[in-house]
Each structure stands twice: as structure tokens, then as C-alpha cells.
Design a protein around this nucleic acid. Sequence first.
DNA 1: TCCTTATTAGGATTTAATCTTATTAAAAGA
DNA 2: TCTTTTAATAAGATTAAATCCTAATAAGGA
Lengths: 134, 134
Amino acid sequence: MIQRNTIQCSVILKKINELKAHVTADELYEAIVSEYPSISRATVYRNLNKLVEMGKIRKVSVPNGADRFDYLCCDHYHVKCRLCGQLFDVEMDYIADLKQRIKDAHGFEFFGHNIIFDGICPACGKTKIKENKK
Amino acid sequence: MIQRNTIQCSVILKKINELKAHVTADELYEAIVSEYPSISRATVYRNLNKLVEMGKIRKVSVPNGADRFDYLCCDHYHVKCRLCGQLFDVEMDYIADLKQRIKDAHGFEFFGHNIIFDGICPACGKTKIKENKK
DNA sequence: TCCTTATTAGGATTTAATCTTATTAAAAGA
DNA sequence: TCTTTTAATAAGATTAAATCCTAATAAGGA
């Protein structure tokens, strides 16, 4: 017996697919606790990592912020707004050959890569222009 | 009077350039406190952020780990060993045109990007082979 | 149904980073 | 040089993210 299917784990996976957003573990906990009041924060964190290892969801490490979890779809990248801190999807092909660009691997074994863009989202961009006009 | 040159700030910058490594704020604090015992952790963190904003050093956000700080040299990328957690430089040209690859910017303003590779360093790779042979 | 043990709940703990407040010192001007 | 202003500091408290700890629970094979 290696791994058990628990109600908690399936509730977590269901909720991520339902929300279709880049949620933090804590946001997810808050969303679940209303319909499953006894669930523990530790259970949410533990199962999220388990689901990532199983390849059923994706974890996005965000600079200066909590990790975010994403339902699975195509490979894609993200941009974090430097003003509001929100994470958005970026429509761009996955750069499959990125590791071929590495000049000297020094004996490293590469598995994948993570790209996060730094930018300003449309909403914050508009606010910024208004504030500059003041 | 906008900004003051403090001894603490210059000690921190000097130490980063001396170490020439990807140090965390805490590692840096430990390295400095021996020769400057009264320095405060908060001062190290505050000045590191200040130096990043001034463009004198670089901050690297590492998945599942503390931020690391780098002395300035050329633009480059990093790889984090998934076994030992250490951060290493990757020799690869900076992809200046990366944002041109974005298909639909949705009104976003882009400034830059951050790439972190996921891999296994040579030292850990050797250890792994040995352990598999057991 | 029973038994083994993976998983959970709930709170405690750890770690990274920042905040708070009284004190100190950088640097501009007299 | 001395005075004044206030940015920056020290030291400890606090916050936030994530994990750990332990007794209790429940998944699922026998």
C-alpha cells in the first residue's frame, strides 16, 4: 500500500480545477474550509505538494510572494505585475530548446526551466497614468 | 537630502563583492556580524533592497528558498540543484528579445524576465549514481 | 469485519522578511 | 566648527509562508 485516496485530496484537486486561477495554498484553504470546515492548513499544503509530484497540478514560485498553484493545461509562462502583485498568464510558446542554448553545462543535468516576466498589468498601467496627471 | 551614505551600507556592499557568491541575506549577516558585531539583521535586509534598487547588486528569487544576492557582472541566468538546493551560474546569452515572443500582451508593459533552471549539479549527480549502485 | 499504517486535525514551530520605536549619526547650513 | 534636521540604525517584536509534531482517524488489503 503506497498511496491512499483521501477525500481531502480530491476536494483540493476539485477546487483548484474549479477556480481555474493562480491560487495560493492559503487562498485555497480559505475557499475549501467553508464547505469542509475541519480541513487543516497542513493538509492543504501537503496535498498540494503531492499533486504537484503526481503531475496533476503545477506550482509556480513567485518572487516576493507565496507559491501559487495552477490547474493543468498547456505549458505556459507567467508575468507578475510589479504594482498589484497579481500573477497573469502569458501567451507564448514554451521554449523547448532553451537548454540547448546553455554554453557550458559543467556536468549539470537539466530538467526544465521557469520563466517569470516582470511587468505592469493593464489595470495598474491606467491607474499609473491618472496619478501622473495629478 | 535624499539618501545618506552609511558605514553599514558600504560594509554590506563590500562584503558581497568580496564573497562573489549567491548569498542569502542571513548568510551575509552572519559574515558581517563577526567584524561588525552591532549590525542588525533589519539593516542588512534594508540595505540589500536599497542596493538592488540602486542597481549595484542583483537579487535572485529562488523557488523554495530565501532570496539570494549577487555581485554585478554580466547578465546571466541560474540553475538550482534540486538535490542540494544550491544556486549556480549558467553560461548562456541573455535572451534580449524574449518579450518579442509574447503573442498577446493584453496591454501589459514588460520590463524584464527571470529564468531559473531546474537541474542536478555535478556533485549531487555523482552521489546519486553511487546510491543507485548500492 | 478486522488490521495495518498512511493520512489527518490542530496547534506548535521554523524560516524569511519586515515592522516598531527610541536612539544615533550623516550632512547641510550657520 | 557647531548646530540642526531627519534619514538610518539597533534590537527585539511581528508577520507571513510553510512545515513539523503527535494523537486520532480512516483507507483499503486480508
